[in-house]
Design a binder for these strands. Structure first.
Lengths: 117, 117
DNA sequence: TAGGGTACTATAAAAAATGTAAGTAATGTC
DNA sequence: GACATTACTTACATTTTTTATAGTACCCTA
């Protein structure tokens, strides 16, 4: 996940589209397999790594870590490490992270409508 | 793209998440590399295969075909073949397809805001 | 001293998505 | 008959994403 080939056509295509369309740009940021689910859970407030893990049955620790890092890199979540043993790490949405709510709401509304077809 | 392994963990995870969260369900439907861009262009009205191709620099015919098929399967677009030579095929959003507009709008708004950070 | 809890990291492999290159069908024009 | 046009299809290669499995560090408790 962290090693994309910046010389690939795929990379160039994504970059070009992201540049032109803000909606594609946004979709690329929140578009991992688990990202939206993580964000949705965090909408209710901060959670620890382990809590997220329990809330997302099937996710591996590696995936959770990767997605959280990506979200952190994109300033969607903040990561706060407490100097304790055993370790405790809190994840919380940033301001711009919380502002994803309208998107999630619209996706949810549309998804429900589409399911009913 | 058409051969997903229904026995894979990945498939199971996606299905489970889609089931629980309508927003993830929606994201899975509109979430190909080019899907959103295609949908965004079609928001202004129907387009031919070749027109879409021109509007999306970098896309290959194969990818365009695949994405359009997926959108068609998901009832986002309709495909109308005109019995002419050379062939002419029109793609147009369905009702539920046009209803994706709020999502695209919100993504666009958020994307712009995020770019400005 | 052994084991437990927490949040990771490293490495490999599998699966999925995307790209490349070539070919097809039908018909009208030169 | 060769060629152009359009919307594909097919076989294959590459890239990206996700999963699997096994570790690590830290201190506390028994």
């Amino acid at each position: 996940m962290s090693k994309v080939k910046v010389s690939s056509t795929n990379f160039a295509n994504k970059a070009a589209l992201s540049d032109e369309c803000s909606e594609v740009y946004a979709a690329n940021i929140i578009g991992g397999q688990w990202s939206l689910a993580i964000i949705a859970w965090l909408m209710n407030g901060k959670l620890r790594f382990g809590q997220l893990k329990k809330l997302l049955p099937g996710i591996t620790e590696r995936m959770l870590t990767l997605q959280l890092r990506k979200l952190e890199d994109n300033k969607i979540v903040t990561r706060v490490v407490h100097a304790e043993v055993p370790p405790r790490v809190d994840y919380e949405l940033t301001t711009i992270g919380y502002e994803l709510k309208p998107i999630i709401d619209q996706l949810s509304i549309w998804g429900d409508k589409h399911k009913g077809l």
